[in-house]
Computed example of a mutant assay.
Amino acid sequence: MTRRFLPLALTSVALLVWGVLVVPRLPPAPGVRTTANLLAVAVLLAVTRPSRTELGLRRDRAGSGLRWGGLVLGVVGAAYVVALLVPPLHELLDDAAGTETTAELLLRVLVFIPLGTVLAEELAFRGVLLGLALRVLGPVRAALVTSVVFGLWHLATARTPDAAVQDPLLSAVAVLGVVAATAGAGVVFAFLRLRSGSLLAPVAAHLATNALGLVAVAIAVRSGGRPALDTPDLGAVLSQLAWCG
């Protein structure tokens, strides 16, 4: 019985070691983490050899994936528009971290996030890991287990060294909040993958959350007419979760 769970356990550990220990130590130069993540996922695919069904890449399910993904894309996009139009919500986005130039923002939104974050993470978690989990667990437990691993994957990006020095307790709470939020997002992404039968659905949802979120933050900061603050907040979280460049 234990040996049945070994591929799932080893893959989970390998993903966490990569995401929490290796990636944060890579050079910060643009594109390095994106390239590294794509290469790591290529190795993961070569080692585990999942079927197209397990990856959610069956052609006959692509239409369903696009429909579900498009729905979520529209809902998330509408939510960010509302956040930009409603003053209190606009202020939450305005208190953002990061003030990239337009070129840097476009590079992150059009290249680094779609490839290094969305494609890499969806292939790894809603593709390979969820496929392995479904071999030994039912759909609900498989979704929960892989989503917990997905949340823990974000431990490194959730940590803010300056905040930890100033208030360790507050920093720990913030880290737990980010891990819980990303685990919750993982549950939604897993549901979309299972419901649609296609990886395209969580890819679209993930892209909407990260890329549109970063664009909303940039619009809020620039329209607010003041520099970004250094305190952790909604904008900072959105920026941190788009760490792939």
Results as ranks from 00 to 15, higher is better:
Leu106His: 05
Ser223Val: 10
Ala163Met: 13
Leu110Ser: 05
Leu212His: 01
Glu100Ala: 11
Ala205Trp: 05
Asp167His: 12
Gly235His: 04
Gly63Cys: 07
Ala40Gln: 06
Val109Asp: 06
Leu192Thr: 01
Val13Phe: 13
Arg59Trp: 12
Leu92Cys: 02
Thr101Trp: 11
Leu144Gln: 05
Leu176Ala: 15
Val17Tyr: 03
Ala97Lys: 05
Pro7Asn: 09
Asp162Trp: 15
Leu132Phe: 05
Gly224His: 04
Ala124Val: 12
Glu91Gln: 12
Thr157Glu: 04
Ala36Gln: 08
Val109Leu: 14
Leu130Thr: 11
Leu207Phe: 14
Gly65His: 04
Leu134Gln: 09
Thr99Phe: 04
Gly225Phe: 10
Leu73Gly: 03
Leu229Gln: 12
Pro7Gln: 10
Ala216His: 10
Ala172Val: 03
Pro50Met: 13
Gly186Arg: 03
Leu8Val: 14
Val165Arg: 15
Ala164Trp: 10
Thr11Ser: 12
Glu54Asn: 01
Leu55Val: 07
Val148Arg: 02
Asp162Thr: 14
Leu107Asp: 08
Ala36Leu: 06
Leu241Val: 15
Ala208Val: 11
Arg58Asp: 14
Phe125Lys: 01
Val22Thr: 08
Ala78Trp: 00
Ala158Met: 07
Ala163Gly: 10
Arg61Met: 08
Leu15Ala: 13
Pro50Gly: 13
Arg52Glu: 11
Leu89Asp: 03
Ala97Ile: 07
Val175Asp: 08
Leu85Ile: 01
Gly245Tyr: 13
Pro202Thr: 03
Gly31Val: 09
Pro30Trp: 06
Arg126Trp: 09
Pro232Glu: 05
Gly74Asn: 08
Gly213Ile: 06
Trp18Val: 05
Ser51Pro: 13
Leu194Thr: 11
Leu229Phe: 11
Leu119Pro: 00
Pro88Cys: 06
Arg67Ile: 08
Arg193Met: 07
Leu105Lys: 08
Leu26Cys: 01
Ala142Cys: 11
Ala242Cys: 13
Gly19Glu: 10
Val148Leu: 15
Val175Thr: 12
Leu200Glu: 02
Val109Lys: 02
Thr48Cys: 15
Val148Glu: 04
Ile219Arg: 12
Phe112Gly: 00
Pro50Ala: 14
Gly74Ala: 12
Val72Lys: 02
Ala174Val: 08
Val23His: 01
Val149Met: 06
Arg195Gly: 00
Ala46Ser: 12
Glu104Leu: 05
Pro87Phe: 01
Leu110Tyr: 03
Gly197Val: 11
Val72Gln: 01
Leu8Thr: 11
Arg3Pro: 00
Ala181Glu: 05
Ala158His: 07
Thr182Tyr: 08
Leu144Phe: 14
Tyr80Thr: 07
Gly19Gln: 08
Ala242Ser: 15
Leu229Asp: 13
Asp60Arg: 13
Pro24Asp: 08
Ser171Cys: 03
Val237Leu: 14
Leu39Gly: 11
Gly225Lys: 08
Met1Asn: 05
Pro161Cys: 10
Leu105Met: 11
Gly77Gln: 04
Ala62Phe: 15
Pro88Lys: 04
Gly177Ile: 09
Ser223Thr: 13
Pro27Ala: 00
Leu123Gln: 02
Ala96Glu: 04
Pro232Ala: 10
Ser12Trp: 11
